[in-house]
Simulated scan of single mutants.
Amino acid sequence: MSIEDDPFDYQVTKSRVLIIRRGGRAVMELGGKKAAALIPKLGRSDEADQQLLARVTGNYRRGNEKQTQKPR
């Protein structure tokens, strides 16, 4: 499933906690210095937001994963 098929969504609370959601479920809550650094970067473009959120949550393909072999 790709980011285009199932995009991330986020919400910034009054207490500056960043809640990251995907598929209607909260996948991560980020606060403190990490949230303070990420919040100003969000909102520029949807594609950039998706990449940032994917990297923060760890749901980011780096292109160096081993391909599984199909059974013979």
Rank of each mutant, 00 (worst) to 15 (best):
M1E: 12
M1G: 13
S2T: 15
S2D: 08
I3D: 11
I3A: 13
I3L: 15
E4F: 09
E4G: 01
E4N: 11
D6K: 14
D6M: 13
D9E: 15
D9L: 07
D9G: 09
Q11S: 11
Q11I: 07
V12Q: 02
V12M: 09
T13P: 05
T13A: 15
K14V: 11
K14D: 15
V17I: 13
I19G: 05
I19L: 11
I20F: 00
R21D: 13
R21Q: 04
R21S: 15
R22C: 00
R22E: 03
G23P: 03
G23W: 06
G23C: 01
G23V: 08
G23N: 05
R25K: 14
R25S: 10
R25N: 13
V27C: 01
V27N: 05
M28T: 02
M28L: 15
M28Y: 05
E29A: 02
E29W: 02
L30Q: 01
G31V: 07
G32R: 06
G32L: 08
K33A: 14
K33F: 00
K34I: 10
A35K: 03
A35I: 07
A35M: 10
A37H: 12
A37K: 15
L38S: 03
P40R: 07
P40L: 04
P40H: 03
P40Y: 06
G43E: 06
R44H: 13
R44P: 00
R44E: 14
S45E: 13
S45K: 12
S45L: 04
D46P: 09
E47S: 09
D49G: 00
Q50T: 02
Q50R: 07
Q50H: 03
Q51R: 15
Q51Y: 04
L52T: 05
L52G: 01
L53C: 07
A54V: 03
A54F: 05
R55V: 09
R55L: 08
V56G: 00
V56K: 00
T57V: 11
T57K: 07
G58N: 01
G58M: 02
N59K: 11
Y60V: 00
R62W: 02
G63L: 01
G63F: 01
N64R: 12
E65P: 01
E65L: 10
T68G: 08
Q69C: 09
Q69V: 15
K70D: 10
K70L: 13
K70M: 13
